[in-house]
Design a protein around this nucleic acid. Structure first.
Lengths: 209, 209, 209, 209
DNA sequence: ATCTAAGCGAGACGGTACGTCACGTCTTGGG
DNA sequence: CCCAAGACGTGACGTACCGTCTCGCTTAGAT
């Protein structure tokens, strides 16, 4: 599995592996079929058997690239979100962050949001693909946020003595919270308000402490 | 399902049903067996088959009270956390909140934390028990937090114009975030820092806005 | 498996096993389906998957009673030949033997003959059912022959100093030989001639030794 | 398939085919690997996949020469018994026959005996190689027996009015019988006794008919 | 000395069947 | 009428081989 990921993302790997190469046609058909099933029935509807049948592919071909339905689902989800949007757009880092949060919320609120949530929750294994998945959907956004926060510091919009780890969790955590628990909707009003509260703080400044 | 909950929690149910009553011994054995399996192998290891065997109970007895493994698991998890700790302890509402957050973090960091996370993520159905579960583990704490926050407002420790929904998500969301994503540990330092940052805000006060 | 055989053949087994008893309807449907497939496509066409489908039965039900396609096939073949014909009919034991040989040859020459041959050849395992199968189709006839030969001895039609084991193999072996190798047909002429040659011997009596 | 046999045994075939000739090294490795597997696990253990791997050979190379595992197994078995022993040795044709029967019994009793039996039983197809196999292991011995019997007739040791087909089956059939059914061992005592009984006959000469 | 057709290893391909596991339902006898 | 036991039909699991198909690389006769 890991080598597939590598081949398709980074390493050039001069030496071509021996034997017949994996069929890209099959790979595409599999990921498309998985995405379709995911769309129609959600995470629990994805079975190796069903995907193989819909993709017109043998089961062993699935297992050659993904070791179970969980991995396959993650791969398909990643595939649907291949193009990461540009982050920096405006002059204000905080404005950029606000935009990014809205986008993340929009993805989470969409059909695939629940699937992502379930996959993250279920992905307790230390698989390579699990890490890739978490990074792709969760941590990458968080890292973008870190850049924007640092920028905001240098723009003097944010204090320089904050704990970045905590600040980032404070901003992105609530999105996940609403996604999973679903007690309130994931709207732009929410993310905007969240950011505003995070920046301003809850404290009553007149009666400091 | 719902009547089981009722029987074991509140309503006395004057009219005893005809025939042999359900064995409480069986119920206890089942929940204990489920909890053991949960401890040993996690959520995915809980199967109706396995629980029945370990509890020395027939499968229909399981299905009489819980409609699938998911519900049974939730019931068992709820059972392990029956005693809700008192909330108010000190004079300061914020101190109480800090204590509560530490406790929640401790539960999440424990063995059953992951299980709770997975159950919440997977519980997209509108079952009665699902709601009970979410309330028990997630929303009840949030409501306790709401009380404490309101108290803090009347203690003039917190601004009165905050959006409580957002503030609560900002405080409890990061716990869930770390629980699920696991990028950083769920320590008391974290919850303390989180609360401090949430109260103080990220803004640079010298250069207001 | 073995207990099924026992139940259906000999032991009364006072104590009924607990739980839901095995469905005789399923058993019958399975054996019928197997026999049909056997008839249509021979031994190699019998697959657990195919039998389950045709019998309208789940695969685990097959595996509950037979551990693989080989055993199932043997069971089905035995079922098709449940009624063993009476042996003794005429006054002459040799005449009876001649009749029996004709019958055995007829069975071997029929459609199921090849199947029996292949099963015997492939049944190198020491399974209970394998022994039953061999006994049913091969050794039981041989034992009948032994009785008839003994009778023939007491009728003074056969020498009393012959080796029964060798004599029996000399009579029944050639049937198997033709069945398997197929170099000559398994006709009544053949069995009659075989018996005649076996009795008379090949020796040239005029030039004894 | 047939041309491979021809190439390796008899016909010179003037026109050499273009392109790279088949590797004899590969052929040898394949047959050796097959024989080893046969020795270790019997007929059912012979798979094209396994043979290819053990022989260090690609699967297409197997299929270029043999169309399935059955054919390959037959080829390997034939290879192990390439040198047919001389038949005539003594002055007495019957003695020679006795010797030959012992040899056949020895082969059948050996490890490869079962394999040969299974192959013959399973070889219901009219393949060229199937015929070769049957001839090689079964019918060739029978034909040698025919020659010896004829010789015995001209030596006045055997009646001239016997049916040779029946007589040959009466002699060789029991060997196969014991090989397949396995009710009694295939010893030299058995073949000697068998021949003696076949010659002498079972009849009670004193009370002729 | 090059060209070129075929064999070579490796291994992925679409399939089929395997034997197992758990599902949720049912059917027993017993309490 | 509940209970344990366990068989039932169903369906997915992950594996083993099947026989076919690319790959890039020999190899050796024909040019």
């Amino acid at each position: 599995m890991s080598e597939t990921v590598k081949n398709n993302s980074t390493a050039p790997l001069k030496r071509r592996p021996r034997g017949r190469p994996r069929s890209t046609a099959a790979r595409v058909a599999i990921l498309r079929a998985t995405a379709e099933i995911l769309e129609e029935g959600g995470v629990t509807a994805v079975t190796m058997e069903g995907v193989a049948q819909r993709a017109g592919v043998g089961k062993p071909t699935l297992y050659r690239s993904w070791r179970n339905a969980h991995e396959l689902t993650m791969a398909a989800l990643i595939e649907t979100q291949k193009a990461p949007p540009a982050v920096r757009a405006t002059a204000s880092a905080l404005d950029d962050l606000r935009q990014q949060l809205r986008k993340v919320a929009a993805v989470f609120a969409s059909r695939i949001g629940r699937s992502v949530a379930m996959m993250v929750a279920a992905a307790d294994d230390g698989t390579e693909l699990s890490k890739v998945f978490r990074t792709h959907f969760i941590l990458a956004r968080r890292e973008e946020g870190r850049v924007l926060l640092a920028e905001a510091v240098s723009q003097h919009a944010i204090r320089r003595d904050i704990d970045f780890e905590i600040a980032l969790d404070m901003i992105y955590g609530p999105l996940f919270y609403r996604l999973l628990v679903g007690h309130k909707p994931l709207t732009a009003e929410f993310t905007d308000g969240l950011l505003a509260h995070a920046i301003a703080g809850l404290t009553n400044r007149k009666a400091r402490r």
